[in-house]
Amino acid sequence: MDALLRVTDAMKSFRETRLSALRPPTEFFDYHRISRPADFNQATSRISYNTRYFSGNYGLIVAVLAVYAVIANPLLLLSLAFLFGGFAAINRFAPDPMQVGDHVVTQKSLYTGLFVIGIPLLWLSSPLGTFFWLVGASSVLILGHACVIEPGIESEYANIQESV
């Protein structure tokens, strides 16, 4: 019951902090505000402002791309499920040593077996390639959007509020 309470509190705080920063899709996809930046300085200032202003939307983009990347790589999904599921099963069902025939099976030996199988399986699923794909795809999408969207009129007042 205590764990359920902690999960609901974590979900509430996540909703209050991250999801409250989400901008509506009409504002995020406003094609009337799309324009090419005049120079590098303007592009940098747009990126600086828009990454703060649309941070919730960009976080959602990264999360969706991460879910896609894991689902698109079935071996990675299988190896992560094996490792996390094995870890949870060992913690839940084998906290004490067991006698199996002439051998005593401890939690340490179960973890060793899990990692001897799980780590090579994880290595074969190329998690670094998936990670770098996620970083590259997120960067291109986020920087591209932040660069071409003109900041709204409220951006002029943001500088005044920060300096006060």
Rank of each mutant, 00 (worst) to 15 (best):
V116W: 13
I153A: 15
V64T: 08
V116I: 14
G86D: 00
L114V: 03
L110I: 01
H103K: 14
L75G: 05
V116D: 10
L134T: 04
R46V: 07
P95F: 02
L124E: 11
I142V: 05
S155M: 03
P97F: 03
N73Q: 11
V104M: 07
A94V: 06
S48Y: 13
G85R: 09
S109C: 09
I142D: 02
L77E: 03
L78C: 12
Y58F: 10
L124Q: 12
L77T: 06
G85M: 09
A89W: 13
Y49G: 04
K108G: 14
F131S: 12
V148Y: 09
L60S: 05
A43N: 03
P37F: 02
A88N: 10
I61G: 14
R52A: 11
V140R: 05
A137L: 14
L60I: 05
P127F: 03
S109D: 12
I117Q: 06
T106K: 07
A88P: 05
Y111F: 12
V116G: 10
E156W: 13
I71A: 11
Y58E: 05
Y53C: 00
F115D: 01
W133K: 08
V100F: 11
T44E: 15
L124Y: 15
G118V: 08
T51F: 12
S126V: 08
G129C: 04
K108T: 13
F132G: 13
I117N: 06
L141A: 11
A137P: 15
E154C: 06
A72G: 10
N50T: 00
E150R: 05
G59E: 04
L124V: 12
L134Q: 03
F132T: 15
S139Q: 09
N73T: 11
S138Y: 07
N41C: 14
Q42I: 13
R92Q: 15
A89P: 09
G144A: 00
G101V: 09
S45V: 05
I142A: 01
L65D: 01
F93V: 02
T130G: 03
S155K: 02
K108N: 13
A94F: 10
Y157E: 14
Y68C: 15
L80W: 04
A137Y: 12
S155C: 03
A43R: 02
N57A: 00
R46G: 06
A146G: 06
W123K: 13
G86P: 03
L76C: 06
N41G: 15
G113L: 11
Y68R: 14
L77A: 07
F132A: 13
F87E: 13
F115K: 04
P151Q: 05
H103T: 14
P120A: 01
I160Q: 08
G113V: 08
F40C: 12
V70E: 07
F115T: 01
G113R: 07
P127R: 01
D39V: 05
I160R: 10
A94M: 08
Y157C: 12
G129W: 09
V135F: 13
